[in-house]
Design a protein around this nucleic acid. Structure first.
Length: 284
DNA sequence: GTCCAGGATCGGA
DNA sequence: TCCGATCATGGA
């Protein structure tokens, strides 16, 4: 049985291109005319934004949830209730580089993605580049996910992947990360690492819990905390962020003691700026 | 051919 | 505790 629904969120400041292509997620695809398509859970989802309204359409095959609970899910997924304008104004007030970054790519919102998909995606991200990360995740979904519609597959569950061996996932060409994915799937499925309990843990405990998985270090754990669990103070430190800090901040400074509770939000704007702005924009 | 990519692990000092 | 080599893969 096909279930469909739609939701319009009014008065929300969001730039879909900047939000979906800033490096926090890997599966939203441009579908023309400013529209983006992806799979969330077992739903095929299509979104577009006009002026200050966000239009969300979904269809699924076996959705148990009520229409109302799905609407609530999307309001939280797109972080409707955080006032980005107010927060960013405050953060930018004392930071010239962040002001440039926000002006360069405005409208980035930090999504609340599925913890398992986020964890698995950032395990794949290690020592890798974004185009290839997307390719590997795509192959993972095609091989082991469920076909939805329009060429879109769901992300395979930890349960599905926990039954596989490293050899089984050779087709996705993830290299040395194969053993990490399998270990993560097993530990998440048997609740040795309980992704639901992590929601209620302090940041430090949650990070240590995630790092019980082989191939999950501080960076992968922090990306999961920020992009799935919405810990907005967490700053994942990759090569770009380290590069940026060495260029624009003093030795004893880090993004946490400059931007406080929203350092992770500052981080995604700065990360995106460093990667996409021409060198002449941000060079000293 | 070499270098690098949203890093983590391992062994040796 | 810290440091360097190594881990697959593919594009530049």
């Amino acid at each position: 049985m096909v279930v469909e629904g739609k939701l319009v969120i009014k008065n929300i400041s969001i730039d879909l291109k900047n939000t979906f292509e800033c490096g926090q997620c890997f599966r939203w695809k441009a579908a023309g005319s400013g529209t983006y398509v992806s799979a969330i859970s077992d739903m095929l989802v299509r979104v577009s934004s006009v002026k200050n309204s966000l239009y969300i359409f979904w269809q699924g095959n076996s959705i148990q949830s009520s229409d109302e609970s799905i609407q609530t899910f999307f309001r939280i997924y797109f972080d409707e209730y955080t006032n980005y304008g107010q927060v960013l104004d405050k953060l930018c007030f004392n930071s010239e580089i962040l002001t440039k970054a926000v002006n360069f790519s405005p409208g980035i919102r930090i999504l609340r993605q599925d913890p398992w998909e986020t964890l698995c995606s950032f395990i794949i991200s290690q020592n890798n580049n974004i185009p290839r990360i997307k390719g590997i995740i795509e192959k993972l979904c095609i091989n082991f996910g469920q076909y939805l519609a329009n060429g879109v597959y769901s992300f395979p569950s930890a349960e599905i992947l926990s039954c596989l061996s490293e050899e089984d996932i050779l087709p996705i060409k993830c290299g040395f990360r194969a053993k990490y994915i399998i270990d993560a799937a097993k530990k998440v499925h048997n609740k040795e690492v309980n992704l639901e309990k992590i929601r209620f843990m302090t940041t430090d405990l949650a990070r240590n819990e995630l790092m019980k998985i082989r191939g999950v270090g501080p960076k992968v754990a922090d990306c999961t905390l920020l992009y799935a669990y919405h810990k907005l103070d967490v700053v994942p430190k990759d090569v770009w962020v380290k590069r940026m800090i060495s260029l624009f901040f003093k030795n004893d400074q880090n993004l946490t003691n400059v931007f406080g509770d929203y350092a992770g939000l500052a981080q995604i704007y700065l990360f995106n700026y460093m990667r996409k702005a021409p060198y002449s924009y941000w060079k000293i």
